[in-house]
Computed example of a mutant assay.
Amino acid sequence: MFIDSHCHLSFPELAEQLPAIRQAMNAAQVDRALCICTTLEEFPQVHALATGYSNFWCSVGVHPDNEGVQEPTVQDLLERAALPRVVAIGETGLDYYGMEDRKGGRSIADLEWQRDRFRTHIRAARAAGLPLIIHTRSASEDTLAILREEGEDGAGNRAGGVFHCFTESSEVARAALDLGYYISFSGIITFKSAQALRDVVAFVPMDRMLIETDSPYLAPVPFRGKTNSPAYVPHVAHQVAQVRALAVEAVAETTSRNFERLFARAQA
Rank of each mutant, 00 (worst) to 15 (best):
R22S: 02
T254C: 08
T190G: 06
L218W: 06
M206K: 11
D76H: 15
L132M: 13
T190Q: 03
A196H: 15
A145K: 15
L147H: 12
V240A: 12
N228Y: 08
M99R: 09
A175Q: 15
A127Y: 07
L179F: 08
V46G: 04
P222N: 12
S140V: 09
Q70F: 02
N55V: 01
V87P: 11
F11Q: 05
E149W: 12
H235I: 01
A245G: 14
R32C: 07
F2L: 03
F118S: 06
L18Y: 09
Y182T: 01
Q267L: 09
F263N: 06
E171P: 11
R148G: 13
A264C: 13
R123F: 04
D4S: 06
D116P: 05
E100F: 13
S229T: 13
T255L: 06
D207Y: 13
H8W: 00
V69S: 10
A88H: 14
L177K: 13
D76E: 06
E79Y: 09
V62N: 02
F263D: 07
L78C: 09
A33D: 03
Q17Y: 02
N55A: 00
A27F: 01
G160V: 05
R198D: 07
T39Y: 03
E100P: 04
I108H: 11
A128G: 07
Q239I: 09
I146H: 14
D65G: 14
M209C: 10
E71H: 14
D110Q: 11
D101S: 09
Q267R: 15
H8F: 02
T255Y: 14
L147S: 03
R126G: 01
K226L: 07
R224W: 11
H238L: 05
A109P: 12
D199H: 10
L34D: 04
R208W: 03
A33S: 11
S184T: 08
N258S: 14
Y232E: 08
A88F: 12
V236M: 03
V201A: 02
A241M: 09
R115T: 10
I133P: 13
G68N: 08
E171V: 15
L18W: 01
R106A: 14
A266R: 07
E41L: 00
I89R: 03
C7A: 10
D101F: 00
P19T: 02
